[in-house]
């Protein structure tokens, strides 16, 4: 956990872009990103998870059965501003690679930070889905991102 973690628990209603909502218990506790691992997932063009590797299962706290067939936004932490994800979708919609720092929400309400890269999967000229690979971010990048996202959230 990070030094700033309070372990405070709050109940938050999270609204997704497609109009669905869910109520989640959020715990202010960081789960450190494991050294040397990559979290890998793939989705279809609508963002529905079609593949999750073991690191993804371990870090998200969900089982493989729970992840497959679910929208990737299940990981969205309420501290992440919507505009950050708009940037992601605008970039990959153009067929290009997106990099960013993301605070993810675990099933147990705790969080973990990642450096994420998302690329479109093109087969015979057609978009068939997206691959997302997450790796360990540096503490300084996490701090920069936390400050930036707080500012952006205040503006939303």
């Amino acid at each position: 956990m990070s030094e700033q973690d309070t372990l405070e628990v709050r109940t938050v209603e999270i609204s997704y872009f497609d109009g669905t909502k869910r109520t989640a218990e959020i715990v202010d506790r960081e789960v450190p990103y494991p050294d040397g691992k990559l979290i890998v997932s793939r989705t279809d063009p609508q963002g529905i998870i079609t593949h999750a590797n073991q690191s993804f299962i371990d870090m998200s706290g969900y089982s493989e059965e729970e992840l497959i067939g679910t929208n990737h936004y299940i990981l969205r932490h309420p501290d992440m501003p919507a505009i950050a994800f708009k940037g992601l979708w605008d970039t990959i919609d153009q067929g290009t690679k997106w990099h960013g720092y993301v605070k993810n929400l675990r099933k147990d309400g705790a969080y973990y930070w990642v450096k994420a890269t998302v690329i479109p999967n093109i087969r015979n000229g057609q978009l068939v889905g997206y691959t997302s690979v997450r790796r360990k971010p540096s503490r300084s990048k996490i701090e920069e991102s936390e400050a930036l996202y707080k500012t952006l959230m205040a503006e939303e």
Binding site: R42, H51, K97, T117, I119, N121, R123, T131, S132, V133
Partner: peptide, 11 residues
């Protein structure tokens, strides 16, 4: 093969 290449591309 394509899956592995996509993964390499992200790195």
């Amino acid at each position: 093969t394509e899956f592995m290449i996509d993964l390499i591309d992200t790195l």
